Computed example of a mutant assay.
Amino acid sequence: MRIIAMIPARYSASRFPGKLMQDLDGKPVIVRTFDATVATALFDAVYVVTDSEIIKETIEAAGGNVIMSKKSHESGSDRIAEAVEDLEIDIVVNVQGDEPFIEKESLEKVLGVFKTDFNKEIDLASIMVEMHRWEDISNPNIVKVIVDQNDFALYFSRSPIPYPRDKDAGARYFKHKGIYAFRKSALLDFAKLPMKFLEATEKIECIRYLEYGKKIKMVETTVEGIGIDTPEDLELARKQWK
Rank of each mutant, 00 (worst) to 15 (best):
residue 4 I to D: 09
residue 21 M to N: 08
residue 12 S to P: 10
residue 214 K to Y: 07
residue 85 E to T: 06
residue 116 T to E: 13
residue 214 K to N: 03
residue 241 W to R: 15
residue 31 V to L: 11
residue 226 I to E: 07
residue 166 D to G: 00
residue 118 F to D: 12
residue 192 K to V: 04
residue 15 R to P: 13
residue 72 S to N: 09
residue 56 K to G: 05
residue 39 A to M: 09
residue 74 E to I: 10
residue 142 I to W: 03
residue 228 I to N: 10
residue 148 D to K: 09
residue 195 M to F: 15
residue 157 S to V: 00
residue 81 A to L: 09
residue 47 Y to R: 00
residue 205 E to A: 15
residue 8 P to T: 05
residue 116 T to R: 12
residue 63 G to C: 06
residue 218 M to G: 06
residue 186 A to P: 01
residue 170 G to Q: 02
residue 199 E to D: 12
residue 17 P to Y: 04
residue 40 T to N: 01
residue 113 V to Y: 08
residue 233 D to L: 05
residue 100 P to K: 08
residue 138 S to C: 13
residue 172 R to L: 09
residue 77 S to I: 13
residue 173 Y to W: 06
residue 3 I to W: 05
residue 238 R to D: 00
residue 188 L to E: 02
residue 164 P to Q: 02
residue 205 E to K: 04
residue 164 P to F: 01
residue 191 A to Y: 10
residue 164 P to A: 01
residue 221 T to K: 04
residue 187 L to H: 02
residue 204 I to G: 10
residue 22 Q to V: 02
residue 233 D to N: 11
residue 73 H to F: 03
residue 240 Q to A: 15
residue 201 T to C: 14
residue 52 S to E: 13
residue 2 R to T: 05
residue 105 E to C: 14
residue 212 Y to I: 07
residue 134 W to P: 06
residue 23 D to N: 12
residue 188 L to T: 03
residue 101 F to P: 01
residue 166 D to H: 01
residue 7 I to C: 05
residue 78 D to W: 06
residue 39 A to T: 07
residue 29 V to L: 04
residue 218 M to H: 06
residue 40 T to C: 07
residue 135 E to S: 06
residue 105 E to D: 12
residue 116 T to D: 11
residue 162 P to N: 04
residue 232 E to V: 08
residue 138 S to G: 11
residue 162 P to L: 00
residue 213 G to P: 03
residue 242 K to H: 11
residue 144 K to Y: 08
residue 141 N to R: 06
residue 10 R to S: 14
residue 166 D to N: 00
residue 200 A to T: 12
residue 218 M to R: 07
residue 2 R to F: 08
residue 49 V to S: 06
residue 75 S to K: 08
residue 135 E to F: 09
residue 34 F to D: 07
residue 44 D to N: 07
residue 84 V to L: 10
residue 92 V to H: 03
residue 208 R to K: 12
residue 77 S to A: 15
residue 43 F to S: 03
residue 64 G to C: 08
residue 77 S to C: 12
residue 54 I to N: 12
residue 185 S to F: 05
residue 185 S to Y: 13
residue 182 F to H: 11
residue 61 A to D: 11
residue 33 T to F: 02
